[in-house]
Amino acid sequence: MTKTDGSPAPVLVLAFGNLLLEDDGIGIELLRGVEAAGDDARVEFVDGGTQGIALGAALAGREAVLLLDAVRLGAAPGTVHHLREPLRCAPPRGDSAHGANAGELLATAALLGDLPARVEVLGIEPASTRTGIGLSPQVAAAVPTAVRAATEILAAMLAAASGTTPCR
């Protein structure tokens, strides 16, 4: 949930995806898994849907950002990808403000001086992104592995983040 005032949590987990396009919704599914695993005041979870630069507010002021997304690299569907330098790879100027374009979002943040020092992507190679609700079997089978991997990355980000862990 996006805060409206005060300083933001140092770590952001931002998911992209369209739940109406089968495996395109991977990021949102992973977000649910990672969110269930962690409860720490220093991390904020945002379901970015298919927004692009409008998510700039979510990025500003963070130390580290983990993006969860479908990642198409030509590998076998269900392959888990971990990208450490997404800005180098994503095509920046978008084709439209109407598709979340991680590259455009990151490049815009860089232009404004809002780009967090650490940005990584954890995603799964999709099988099908046709209209429909629900993940393909290959992708669904990879979700637990991907959630574990994302949780580890998040833990590493939190270990390096400022602020103290609240009492439980």
Partner: peptide
């Protein structure tokens, strides 16, 4: 887990 440097976009387009 495959670690890759990307060539293809982390992008999403609503329609074309």
């Amino acid at each position: 887990m495959a670690t890759r440097v990307v060539v293809d976009p982390v992008t999403r387009i609503e329609g074309h």
